[in-house]
């Protein structure tokens, strides 16, 4: 049934009926599987993949590396929750290596992001240090390459 996930991962607007045809399954079986995946939290949502750079939107994304003191009995989970509950935070990862937590933030301007770091993240007790890097250009995200799909360049042969 993970084949259903593979198809949805590429195109979540495809119908259950079409998936059923492609995999030689019953439409109802696909609908059931999809509902179960949603319930179990395997499918976490169906979001459009948007290249904001092509819109009027001027928002900016930053990656912030945090060094954090883990808390007794809670590890990193408590501080992670405090961070990811902010709506401007897009992603939070616990990392191996020279820092502990990676935070992806989207803000309307660089200044807004900088303010968020200095007024919200940095003052948290457990946070030892922050290092902020702004994204200048997005080439590829979640497997999608951010450039116009080239036209079908296949020329017709005499067969």
């Amino acid at each position: 049934m993970e084949r259903i996930l593979k198809i949805l991962e590429e195109n979540c607007r495809i119908t259950d009926k079409e998936i059923a045809t492609m995999l030689s399954l019953d439409e109802s079986a696909v609908a059931r599987a999809r509902a179960e995946y949603e319930k179990a939290g395997v499918i976490m949502g169906y979001k459009a993949c948007i290249d904001w750079d092509k819109t009027e939107d001027e928002s900016t994304v930053a990656m912030i590396e945090l060094k954090v003191t883990p808390q007794y009995g809670e590890g990193f989970d408590k501080i992670a929750k405090r961070i990811y509950d902010y709506p401007e935070v897009e992603s939070v990862y616990l990392m191996s290596g020279s820092f502990d937590i990676m935070v992806l933030i989207r803000g309307r301007t660089m200044k807004e992001v900088a303010m968020f770091v200095s007024t919200k993240l940095a003052p948290m007790e457990a946070v030892v240090s922050t290092s902020t890097s702004f994204v200048l250009k997005k080439y590829k995200e979640n497997g999608v390459i951010f450039r116009k799909e080239p036209d079908d360049e296949r020329e017709v042969m005499g067969l």
Binding site: D152, R154, V156, G158, L159
Partner: peptide, 23 residues
């Protein structure tokens, strides 16, 4: 090959789509 003429039309026809290739 008798195919050519169709695909010469496709090349200049706006919004034409093809199921004609062999690759």
């Amino acid at each position: 090959s008798g195919i050519r003429k169709f695909f010469d039309i496709v090349a200049v026809m706006k919004d034409a789509i093809s199921l004609g290739v062999g690759e």
